[in-house]
């Protein structure tokens, strides 16, 4: 973008103004989010003051608990345990779900045969899967992660099946004529076409998975955010429950901003920029 030379202004001045407004434009959404969250905290504080109760602590009290838990290391230990389970269940669910989804999307008869199974698994409550996994495979880490993954896999299958149906046969034919190897086909032809569907499945997946992980931890694990929430539920300590919940939500937000969005920007770099 080059500004036309107006003559009465040094050329640097126009650039300075546009870069300042550029910074302001970049900061506006961040500021909006900050003000919005601050407003929510304020509202929460006012409500907590109006109805003082041990069951409804204000933001200040939750913050104190958060700092205390962080100082003695409990917070990070349990956040780490939950995050590990979320990551493991996510990877298992995405890999298995994508493979099944692509196979169903590209084979009509298989799709017709397995469609009822899919509807069945989509509608089995998460709780049932978790309880059965613990009964059949014992109270161990594999059962916990497997149960979460099984809950998520049908959703991934449905999304990836749509993705496989939308594959452009022209690219596959081009790859066949030029004799692309299997790995090249997956990496350069298949995955880039599935990328929007992978992103959609990931987005909805992480949010769903972490909620199910809490239930898994509550029912059969001795660490993690879910276990801590169960502990503080028995003590009726609402401030601690909120502290753990908000801490984990914050972690997920950071992951979204620092991991998911940059990866997505990288994956869609080839799309024509909006003018």
């Amino acid at each position: 973008m080059t500004a036309p030379d107006t003559g009465d202004r040094p050329p640097g001045a126009a650039a300075d103004i546009s870069s300042q407004s550029g910074v302001a434009a970049a900061l506006t959404p961040v500021l909006t989010v900050a003000v919005s969250l601050l407003g929510l905290c304020l509202l929460w504080g006012l409500a907590a003051n109006a109805w003082p109760s041990r069951a409804f602590p204000g933001p200040g009290r939750v913050w104190q608990v958060l700092l205390a838990e962080a100082a003695n290391g409990d917070l990070f230990y349990h956040l780490g345990a939950t995050l590990g389970r979320v990551a493991a269940a996510y990877v298992v669910a995405m890999v298995i779900g994508s493979v099944i989804g692509v196979l169903l999307g590209s084979h009509r008869s298989a799709d017709r045969f397995f469609s009822p199974w899919l509807v069945l698994f989509l509608n089995i409550p998460a709780l049932v899967v978790i309880v059965l996994a613990y009964i059949w495979f014992g109270l161990n880490e594999a059962a916990a992660i497997g149960a979460v993954a099984v809950n998520k896999i049908p959703n991934v299958v449905v999304t990836m099946r749509e993705g496989a149906r939308a594959l452009d046969p022209n690219y596959a034919e081009m790859a066949a004529i030029y004799r692309f190897g299997l790995l090249d086909r997956i990496r350069h032809v298949l995955l880039p076409q599935l990328q929007p569907y992978l992103a959609a499945a990931s987005r909805s997946g992480i949010a769903l998975i972490w909620k199910i992980v809490l239930v898994v931890e509550l029912l059969g694990r001795s660490n993690g955010v879910g276990f801590q929430i169960y502990l503080y539920f028995q003590l009726f300590d609402v401030a601690a429950i909120l502290a753990y919940t908000l801490a984990f939500v914050a972690v997920m937000l950071v992951i979204e901003l620092l991991l998911v969005q940059p990866i997505e920007r990288h994956a869609t770099r080839w799309r024509r920029r909006p003018a």
């Binding site: 081009m174 350069h188 990328q195 080839w270 799309r271």
Partner: peptide, 13 residues
């Protein structure tokens, strides 16, 4: 090798 009616280049490469 083939050149098709459409170029059929991989848009992401």
């Amino acid at each position: 090798a083939a050149v098709f009616q459409e170029p059929i280049l991989l848009p992401w490469r």
